[in-house]
Amino acid sequence: MTQSRTSILDRIWILAVWTFVGFFILNLAAIVGAVAVNSVATRWLGTWLPKAYTWHWYADAWSEFQLGNILTVTFEVVGAVVLLSGLLGVPAAYALSRRDFPGKKAVMLLFLLPLLVPPMTIGIPLATVLYRLGLGGTIWGVILANLVPSLPFVILITIPFIDQIDQRVEQAARVFGANTLRLFTHVLVPLLTPGILAALLLVLVRTIAMFELTFLTSGPTSQTLVVALYYAVSAAGVRAGQSVDAMAMIYMVTTLVWLVIALRFVNPTQIVGRQAAARD
């Protein structure tokens, strides 16, 4: 329709936009690529690519940073956060989807605020409270801190999925004598599996990458992978750069495997999709 009227200036503009996108992706690839190449380099100084390659930095990183322990802690934290935010979040989403009650707006605001306040702002007062309760530096403190953004996230992602389920299905189950627990286990959870799976996978990916809250509440025995990586990078010079990058690659692979799985169930825009809920 407007093709015939596209002027040269417009074509230059379109070209400029795509050049920028290409340039951005190229830089992104180079940033990730530089970490990947360095992690398998014997020595890399003053050349485009290293002279020789080796895998031994991965073994070094594994033992130097005690990655076995760190990965165990990471998956314990992530598993507990996913489980707890699912168990608390899905019933809450159900109530918010099905009932209109006085104060519902206030409850929605309560679940929106933790997603809008940056983790560094809430992390410091939260860490103070957790340390006073004796939970600071423990794995439970880290799990509780990570629930702050995860639980509202599960609720806000699950609500639209519940809205789509026909209420008559539930009424039929009620007529046949199902109580709320049976309604959940036999009717709602099977119907909601795609939505719950999407929400929990997103929480999983976000919790692996959640730096600030874990950083502020963890101690030496409760560090997750991303916090350990931060300490390794900030203490540059103490360890070989290649071994830090080998650790960065292990972190990257751990995160991206789950991202790929998550993207089978969700649209990439949902990962930043808290604004969709904020608009309602």
Binding site: A34, V35, V226, L229, V233, G241, T255, I271, V272
Partner: peptide
């Protein structure tokens, strides 16, 4: 759009710590 949005979601997912380490090299 899916390919482009997928590529762009990667730096968000990896987070600033990894991006910082990559920038130090690059």
């Amino acid at each position: 759009q899916r390919l482009l949005t997928t590529i762009l979601v990667i730096p968000i997912t990896l987070g600033t710590v990894l991006v910082a380490e990559g920038l130090l090299n690059y």
